[in-house]
């Protein structure tokens, strides 16, 4: 959906992005992580066609940000890290204006505003002034404004900053529901924990470069990683697992193993049944999402 090649962006005196190349997959949630000042915001602004690269290309859905910035603007929603709202307007008017500003006609704008409010869980706040909303609700309103025109791409810069745990959970659910609706999301953050719940891919930005030079897959729709823990040690566990068809053993031991198998649930059920039939005292059999923090530090160190 988004393809970046050899992107260079400079501010006077320093190079914020230095030869960045990456691809963002359509319909996935890609986490953009890295320390403060790594270049995440600049990268997002380049994706949003708000900044012109010094060199290199950024294409969104095949459109170049240099030659077709306005067409790209129509494709995407963008939530900056420090966003603003029209505090004196009601939630309804904020959303109505956002809908009209994104080209939705006067007749359809009210419906689009109501739909965006419903998706963001703001239907009961429509008459409240934006300035009277809590931090979490303001965040939701800002996201609702960004999605009111149902963009194909949503770019979010530090969306969970300053949110309480409940608001973060609500945000995760909202982002997952947007992904299920077919939207491509890029979410930047320097707090890894908040990205773990919903990210499929991760891009690590460090000193204006992509650490490791590539996008890291965190959740693979075609394969599932399963963690197996036995109640009692069995030296034959590795041999047993290696003998199974359609399974890749990623790590093994007498009591623990990590395997990768196809995403089909029936294959997981078959593996569990085989383990039990062969007398393995299975204490734990669970999907193992890669811990973002482990992946992050492994990549940064490499």
């Amino acid at each position: 959906m988004i393809v970046i090649r050899d992107l260079v962006f400079e501010y006077p005196g320093h190079r914020a992005l230095n030869g960045v190349s990456l691809a963002v997959e359509r319909g996935a949630i890609t986490a953009l992580v890295g320390p403060n000042g790594a270049g995440k915001t600049t990268l997002l602004r380049c994706m949003a066609a708000l900044e012109t690269p010094y060199a290199g290309t950024v294409t969104v859905d095949g459109l170049d940000t240099r030659s077709s910035p306005r067409a790209i603007h129509a494709l995407l929603g963008y939530l900056p890290d420090f966003f603003g709202l029209y505090d004196a307007l009601s939630v309804r008017r904020c959303l109505h204006y956002a809908a009209r500003a994104h080209g939705i006609g006067p007749d359809a704008a009210a419906g689009a505003a109501a739909k965006a409010a419903a998706r963001a869980g703001l239907s009961d706040r429509l008459e409240q002034a934006a300035g009277a909303l809590s931090r979490g609700l303001r965040q939701r309103l800002a996201i609702a404004q960004a999605i009111v025109h149902q963009p194909r791409v949503l770019l979010l810069d530090e969306p969970a900053a300053g949110l309480d745990p409940q608001a973060r959970r609500d945000l995760s659910q909202l982002l997952l529901s947007l992904k299920q609706g077919g939207m491509t999301l890029v979410v930047s953050s320097h707090i890894l924990a908040e990205l773990e719940d919903y990210s499929d891919r991760m891009i690590i930005v460090d000193h204006g470069r992509i650490a490791g030079g590539q996008t890291i897959t965190l959740k693979d729709a075609a394969h599932t990683r399963v963690r197996i823990v036995l109640a009692t040690p069995r030296p034959d566990l590795p041999a047993f697992l290696h003998g199974m068809a359609n399974i890749e053993v990623l790590a093994d031991g007498n009591m623990r193993a990590l395997v990768s198998l196809s995403g089909d649930a029936s294959e997981r059920a078959a593996l569990l049944a085989a383990l039990i039939q062969n007398g393995f005292a299975v204490a734990e059999f669970a999907e193992d999402a890669r811990a973002l923090e482990d992946v992050y530090f492994a990549q940064v160190k490499s």
């Binding site: 929603g77 966003f83 029209y86 956002a98 500003a101 080209g103 960004a146």
Partner: peptide, 15 residues
């Protein structure tokens, strides 16, 4: 708009 940080969203609008 810049002070209130709403200018970016205006620039991204189709107006």
């Amino acid at each position: 708009e810049i002070r209130e940080r709403t200018w970016d969203s205006q620039k991204l609008s189709s107006i």
